[in-house]
Design a binder for these strands. Structure first.
Lengths: 348, 348
DNA sequence: AAACCCAACTTGATCGCTAGAATAAGAGTA
DNA sequence: TACTCTTATTCTAGCGATCAAGTTGGGTTT
C-alpha cells in the first residue's frame, strides 16, 4: 500500500515530526534532529520508497507551489493562439527555476455562480483573459491569493497589478512610419474570429486613434474570409488603399500571397504590415514589416511579479502599491513597406 | 477570515455533512437532504461567500481533477517547441470538456533520488519526454497513478501505454516520393540543438533505414548554424545532393531562403522537404512539401486514453491490456519537390 | 546545589473536507 | 404490538502532513 510519513516514522523508531523535519526541512520552527538520526531516517525512507503526499503538505502548510494561468480560449480555433505559446514560454521561464508548477485552467474553476478559482489549489493566478465579465471581475476581486492581469490596461480592476502591451504605441509607430512615405488610405485587415476579440477591437480602435491624431481619414476595416477573399468592409470612401495593417503575421502572409496572385506589387503598389514580428517575417517575399510586441518579456515579468507577491504575502510584508506596466511596442521595418504608390491600381 | 464548510453548517444549523452533500453532491453513498433544507443551505453558502477548499477535498476523496504534462524542455530554446503547441492543443481539447486541469511540470517533481512525481497532486500523468533516463523510468514505473507515454515506441516500458508518431513511415513515404523522381543523393538537414535530441536522432535513423531499404546510399547529415551556413557534415561522397529533408518547416524555410540567395532553383536544381506541414508551408515560394505528423490528434487520443484509465481505475475495473498506438505520417506534396536535376550545380 | 538553558525530540491538535457507520423518526406489514 | 424498511440527518474517524506547545536529559551558570 501507500507508504506514509507515519510508516517511515514507525519503521525508523522516531516520531512523524522528526521525519517531516529531516525530509522536508519544515517542522515547526525550532525542531532539530541529530545528523546521525537524520541519516538513518533518510535511509529508511528511501528503503520504503516513501513518497510524500504533496496534497497533504499543501493543505497544512498553505503553499502549493502552483500557479494558475487562465486563458479565454484554449483549442484549435483560438484567436489567441499566436500569443499563447509566447506567453507560456515567458511564464515558464519565470516559474520553473523557482520550482513552481504551471496549471492551465479552461476558465475559472466551475461554480454556477460564475465565481471562484479552485481555492487552495494555487498560490497565485495569472489572468490572461482580456475580457472582463461581471462574474470574472468578482472572481478576481474575491480571489484569496495574489493575482495579476495580463492584457489589461492599468486600473482595470482596482488594486490588481496589470501588464499589457500598448496597442496605442504600436499603432502610433505604424502611422509614424507610413506618414512620411505618403500613405493616406490605410486599412486594418483582420479575420472573422479575431475581429470579435477584445484584442482585435482594441487594435482597430488604436489604429483609428493614431490615424486621427495624424490627420488621416478613418482607416477602413477589412475582414478576410478563410479563402482570403474580402468578407465585408466598412468604408467611407472608394479610393484604393495604399497600406494594409494586418492583425497577425499569419494573416499578412495570406495577404502577400493574394497580392502576388493578383499581380499587385508589394511594396510597389501597396504596403503591408504584420503583427508579432515572428521568425516568419524573415521568410516572406518581400520580408514582412511587422509590429514587435514584447509578449514573452511581458509574460515573464508578470509571472515574476506574481511570485514576488506570493512571497511577500507569505512573509507577512505589506503589499506594495500595485504595479501597472504598459509595454511599448516597436516596429520592425523590413521590405514590405515603401513609399505610397502613385499608380492607380485596382482596388484591393 | 476564510469561510469553511463548517462555518456554513453552523450558520445554517445543520451538520457539515449535509452541507457537503448539498454543495458537492458527494457525501458517502446514501446520504440525502430534503430539497427544502438544501435550498436553505445553498442560500446560506452564497451569502457567506463560501468557497470550497479544493485541496482538502482532494486529500479526502483522492481525486484532484488535474493531469500532469511532463515536457523535457520548456523555454525559448527548446527544440520541442514546434510540437508543444500542438500537443497542448490536443491535450487541452481532451481534458477541458471533462473538467480536468492541465499542469505543466518542468521535469518530474524534485527529489534528489531522481524519481517521484508530485504525489497525490495529479490524477494522471502524460509523459512527453522522449528520453528515458534510469531515474525517470523508475519514476514512471513507480507512479501511483495512471500514466501514458508520448513519443515512445510501443513496449518502451512494460505495461505502460504509448503513443507515438511513426518516423519510419514518414521517411518511407519521403523516399517513396523521391525515388521515382530520380533522387539518389539525399541529405538530412538539422539544427545544432535538435541534432542531439532523441527526435532528431530518431528521424535521421529512420531516413537512413528507409534509404537503405530502397537501395540508396546512406544519406548525409547536414547541421545548419544559426546563420544557415553549414556547420558540419558527415559525408561519404562528394557529389551534390539532389534532395534535402529538413527537421522542421522552419528550418526548411531557412534552406529555401539560402537557395534563393545562392541562385539555386527549387525544385529545379534541388528538392526540399519540411517536417510538420504547418500553415507556413502554403506561404513559402515555392510551396513547401512537408511531412504531416498527426501530433494534435495523437495528443488528443493520448489524453483521452489517460482519462479513461483514470476513470476505470476509480471504478475498480480491471485495467485492460495497455494500448500502444503508432501513428502513420503522411507526406503533403506541394511545389518544392520535383524530378532530380541533371544539371551539375555547385555543391550545397 | 538549586536554578537555568538548550539541543533533541515527542505529543496532540488541527488544515478543510468526506467516507462509512450509526441514529432517529416515520411508514408499511404481518 | 412488535418488526422491518425507508428516508433524513448526524457522528466518528480519519486523509497525510505540519504547527505550536510540551517533554526530556545533560551541561552551565551563579
Amino acid at each position: 500500500m501507500k507508504v506514509t510519513l507515519k510508516d517511515v516514522a514507525e519503521a525508523a523508531g522516531v516520531s512523524p515530526m522528526a521525519v517531516s523535519v529531516v525530509l522536508h526541512g519544515t517542522g515547526g520552527k525550532k525542531v532539530t534532529v541529530s545528523e546521525e538520526k537524520a541519516e538513518h531516517i533518510r535511509r529508511v525512507a528511501a528503503q520504503l520508497r516513501y513518497r510524500p503526499n504533496t496534497l497533504a503538505r499543501s493543505l497544512r502548510s498553505k503553499q502549493t507551489g502552483a500557479i494558475a494561468v487562465v486563458f479565454q480560449h484554449f483549442g484549435r480555433l483560438s484567436p489567441e493562439r499566436p500569443y499563447r505559446t509566447q506567453i507560456l514560454n515567458g511564464v515558464a521561464e519565470a516559474l520553473f527555476p523557482n520550482e513552481y508548477t504551471l496549471s492551465l485552467c479552461p476558465r475559472m474553476m466551475r461554480d454556477e455562480n460564475g465565481a471562484s478559482i479552485g481555492d487552495g489549489r494555487f498560490d497565485g493566478i495569472l489572468w490572461c483573459r482580456p475580457d472582463f465579465t461581471e462574474g470574472s471581475v468578482d472572481a478576481i476581486r474575491g480571489a484569496s491569493v495574489p493575482i495579476v492581469l495580463m492584457h489589461a490596461p492599468p486600473g482595470s480592476i482596482l488594486g490588481v497589478p496589470t501588464f499589457c502591451a500598448d496597442n496605442e504605441s504600436a499603432m502610433r509607430r505604424v502611422i509614424a512610419h507610413l506618414l512620411p512615405l505618403g500613405h493616406e488610405r490605410i486599412a486594418f485587415v483582420i479575420d472573422p474570429i479575431s475581429v470579435s476579440s477584445v484584442e482585435g477591437q482594441a487594435r482597430a480602435l488604436a489604429l483609428s486613434a493614431a490615424a486621427d491624431r495624424a490627420g488621416l481619414p478613418e482607416p477602413e476595416v477589412l475582414i478576410l474570409a478563410e479563402d482570403h477573399s474580402i468578407l465585408s468592409r466598412y468604408s467611407k470612401n472608394d479610393r484604393p488603399h495604399s497600406a494594409l495593417i494586418c492583425f497577425s503575421d499569419e494573416l499578412a502572409g495570406a495577404v502577400l500571397a493574394s497580392c502576388e496572385q493578383l499581380g499587385v506589387k508589394v511594396p510597389g503598389h501597396i504596403s503591408v504590415i504584420g503583427f508579432d514580428s515572428s521568425w516568419f517575417c524573415e521568410r516572406t517575399n518581400p520580408r514582412l514589416t511587422s509590429v514587435n510586441q514584447p509578449v514573452e518579456r511581458m509574460a515573464f515579468e508578470a509571472a515574476s511579479h506574481l511570485i514576488s507577491l506570493i512571497q511577500s504575502q507569505r512573509d507577512g510584508n505589506v503589499p506594495n502599491t500595485p504595479v501597472s506596466s504598459v509595454y511599448d511596442c516597436g516596429l520592425d521595418v523590413r521590405d514590405s513597406t515603401g513609399p505610397a504608390s502613385q499608380t492607380q491600381i485596382p482596388r484591393f
